[in-house]
Design a protein around this nucleic acid. Structure first.
Lengths: 137, 137
DNA sequence: ATGCTACTTTATAATGATTCTAAAAAAAGT
DNA sequence: ACTTTTTTTAGAATCATTATAAAGTAGCAT
């Protein structure tokens, strides 16, 4: 399933050659049973911890953005100063705890179907994203 | 209605002394019949165009953030390369056109009531924001 | 009004995330 | 193997935002 050949395919689909560094990035991103959220800096830290090698930030940025373009990663819209990414690419929403900065998935089926009763002339909806901000009770 | 005394009140409520610069910022922000969206840079440009005076960026940042803290402005969650603000502080959502970067209000009554069927232990919902991304038909 | 104190403004520097660059390294093609 | 193209990398550049510290202003007590 999530083996090197799968990573090579993902990379080729994204228009990227399967290099050593990119395969390593794939291992961190996709070789898990659970999906997860990350910032580029967190990803960089995970890579340097889990893997002895150092991959330059520029390479991480390039690879993550190529995967996002291809749909293997989603970028999450948080009211913030940095970008969050999600390895869960299915359609879903998020909880965000502004205190802990923690992101939690909110599955599509956990939200009553949303009906948008307004439309913009000449435009069609490409996505509907809900961000539920939470605080301590 | 939206006169200097009203601005002075807004400023005092926000814990700010009513200075010349802050009154000018209020005029641009609140002395209109329509609400609008802006980035700090756009606001800065509007100020230097509409008003002969130059107000430093630091002052604009400080004032906008104080108003946000006090609830006279809302910050909108968009692609996180810069912050967008809204002078419409009523509860509502947004359309965002990624091509034109245009933001449009989506009133609360234009969205079928949202039911979140999941909750996080020890947390309560503080806000639910919908961002509808649109593209050309 | 005058003077004192605390708050503001301002230009500029600092920061932090992201993007760019150009040279060295690696991969692909011949 | 040799040449060409792509990639990696460290460091520089950029952009939004925040911090700083000196000079200016508001508020208050006299």
């Amino acid at each position: 399933m999530n083996s090197v050949s799968n990573f090579v395919e993902k990379l080729r689909n994204s228009g990227l050659r399967p290099t050593k560094q990119r395969i390593k990035i794939c291992e961190v991103l996709f070789n898990t049973d659970k999906t997860f959220h990350f910032t580029i800096n967190e990803l960089s830290k995970i890579i340097s911890e889990k893997i002895e090698e150092k991959i330059s930030l520029a390479t991480i940025y390039n690879t993550v953005h190529a995967f996002k373009r291809e749909g293997y990663l989603k970028e999450i819209t948080i009211n913030s100063d940095k970008s969050y990414f999600d390895t869960n690419t299915s359609h879903h929403h998020h909880f965000f705890d502004n205190l802990t900065k923690e992101l939690t998935d909110l599955n599509d089926e956990d939200v009553e179907k949303i009906q948008i009763k307004k439309s913009l002339p000449g435009k069609k909806i490409s996505s509907v994203e809900i961000l539920v901000k939470v605080e301590n009770e």
